[in-house]
Amino acid sequence: MNPDIFEPKILAFCCHYCAYASADLAGSMRIQYPPNVRIIRTPCTGRLETEYFLKAFEQGADGVLVAGCLEGGCHFIEGNLCAKQRVNAARGLLSEIGLEAERLRMVNISAAMPRPLADVITDMVQTVRKLGPSPIVANFEPITENLS
């Protein structure tokens, strides 16, 4: 990593049945994706709650990526559709808080899409890099101007 470039910390919640398998496959296929991402395997994106996303930001994540199965392809039928609604609601909440909604994103990846997974991770890293470090992160001074 280049010390002069801001390297965002991205937390990725990856569904065990799709995106996590794709990340595994990306490794086997030697497909590179930015090392900024920390993957947490989840049984289904439908298991993710709003508070998980908020806690991630509160504890220093610059961005959060939720990677679930393709729509219609959820192992638990509709878990990824629940997650989609929840992520949308959480993005609204982030805006209310004063954080950019773009810091939270959901993508749909099947177990056989290692290249698209690497692409969405790269895109997410670029998006968050443009936004800059999360102002919530403790080692940054709080922003003092009125953001409301």
């Binding site: 509160e58 004063g98 102002p135 919530i136 709080p142 922003i143 101007e145 409301s148």
Partner: peptide
């Protein structure tokens, strides 16, 4: 939990602890 977390972050962004 959600509201407490949101308040902590929102107040921090507004320069308050």
């Amino acid at each position: 939990g959600i509201i407490a977390s949101a308040l902590r972050m929102a107040s921090k962004l507004r320069g308050r602890a």
